[in-house]
Amino acid sequence: MSAAEHEAITSSEYIKHHLTNLTYGQLPDGTWGFAHNGAEAAQMGFWAINVDTMGWSLFLGLVFFLIFRSVAKKVTSDAPTGLQNVVEAAVEFVDSNVKSMFPYKNTMIAPLALTILVWVFFMNAMDLIAIDLLPEIAKLVGVSLGADPHAVFFKVVPSTDPNITLGMAFVVFILILWFSITQKGLLGFLKELTLHPFSSSNPIVQTLFIPVNLVLELPGLIAKPVSLGLRLFGNLYAGEIIFILIAIMIGANLVLGFFGISLQIIWALFHILIIALQAFIFMVLTIVYMSMAYQTEEQH
């Protein structure tokens, strides 16, 4: 929508601008500050932080927590009203999912699943806010603070940042390892990795099988968090790019503009499904992974 206003920037610049994070880290000259372009952000290495996605992620996490906490504080067992209905529907939904997929006793899984569902949903839902609205506001604020208007990057959908999605996935991975080891013991967990799928009663053959099994099992284990994080990232990133492309079309001319606006609406409507679905998938897979971590060998 702003593409028309900024005819100075090309479409590719517009896209690139939308896909670059506002990164804070060490600049090439040794001082700390915001990167002025994507290349500079890449040069910052690992010890830099995406202020925009991290900030929105924390903000949305706080929104989730404060909403649910405000309900939890004055929750009644009388007829629920207003917000409590919504919160209870979410809790009920998560609870029934956890109960059906995780038959073991662990009071942490359900809160974990609720956090994922609502937080990821909120993060995804940022996609539905008009694509240029928040970045333009950020640009105004940035310029008034004395920054170069082309250097004010602002990505508002945290789940289009792989750092955010992989960060959550790695926590899930750590929990998988933790529950595997606490439930089966370190030895039991290693046995699961090394004695499957090929096993033999002959100890020598079994020893030979160990590396083969490890090669087969380890990628499966590592693929869990990676696929979990990248699935969410990929879906939302793709959706975001389509929003950006349609926005370029709106800037082209009047006919394409109207076509683009209707496309934007259609895509947004369709995207509502993806937003909810990806949050749900992330939650369900987490529950399933936790359940698998609890499953002992005999139950395979």
Binding site: F46, S57, R69, V75, G167, V171
Partner: peptide
């Protein structure tokens, strides 16, 4: 699109929010 410390920031935030939900949100509801 680069992996950076945001990853760690999100991990820490995630753990904190899980704990907060576990401690203050889930049980009363």
């Amino acid at each position: 699109m680069n992996l950076n410390a945001t990853l760690i920031g999100q991990m820490v935030a995630f753990v904190i929010f899980i704990y907060l939900t576990y401690r203050f949100v889930w049980p009363p509801i």
